[in-house]
Amino acid sequence: MSPFKSSTGIPENLAATLCYLFPMVGGIFFLALEKRSRYVMFHALQSLLTFGCLALAHVLSGAVPIIGILASALLALISVLLWLVLMFHSIQGRWFKLPWIGHFAEKQIQRM
C-alpha cells in the first residue's frame, strides 16, 4: 500500500485502482473530488478517456454490418485486457501511460 494518501483520505494507489475498477464512473468521481494527488488525477483522466474512447468505438462498430460484430468482439477483449493491465499497474503505484491517451492525460494534469 502507498504511504501517501489522496485528498479523499484513501491511499493513492487504491484511489487510482478504483478509477479503473469502475470505468468512467470512477474517473469522473475522482476527477471531481481529488484536489492534491496528481497520481490519482492522472489515472482518473486516463481511465475516463480510455474507456470513453472504447465505449464510442463499441457504438460505432455496432453501425457496421457483419464486420462490426467481429470488431465489437475484438474491442470487448481489448477492453478487458486493458482494464486488468491498468488496475495491475495502478495498485502497484506505477505511472503506466497508454500511448496517446496517457500522454494527453499527463499534459492535462500538468496544466492543473
Rank of each mutant, 00 (worst) to 15 (best):
T8D: 09
L84D: 09
V40T: 02
R36W: 04
E34M: 06
L74A: 15
I66N: 13
R36P: 04
F88V: 12
Q46P: 03
M41W: 06
V40N: 00
L45N: 03
L49E: 00
M41G: 11
L18Y: 02
L98C: 04
F30C: 06
M24H: 03
E34P: 08
P99G: 04
S7D: 04
L33N: 11
E106M: 12
Q46I: 04
L18V: 04
F96V: 08
L74M: 11
L31N: 08
I78Y: 10
A15I: 02
G68E: 11
L54P: 00
I10H: 06
H103W: 14
G27Q: 02
W95A: 12
G62A: 10
A15L: 05
L81P: 07
L60V: 10
M87F: 07
G102Q: 02
G93R: 00
I69F: 14
F51A: 03
V25N: 02
I67Y: 15
L75F: 08
L49A: 05
S90F: 02
T17P: 02
G93T: 05
A32Y: 13
G26T: 03
I66S: 14
G9W: 01
P11H: 06
V80T: 13
S2C: 13
W95S: 13
W95L: 14
Q108H: 07
G27P: 01
L70W: 14
T17G: 06
H43E: 09
F30H: 02
H58E: 12
L54D: 01
S37M: 06
P99A: 05
Y39R: 04
H103Y: 14
F42G: 05
L18S: 03
I10F: 01
V64I: 15
P65G: 06
V80N: 11
G102S: 00
S90K: 01
L21Y: 07
S61K: 01
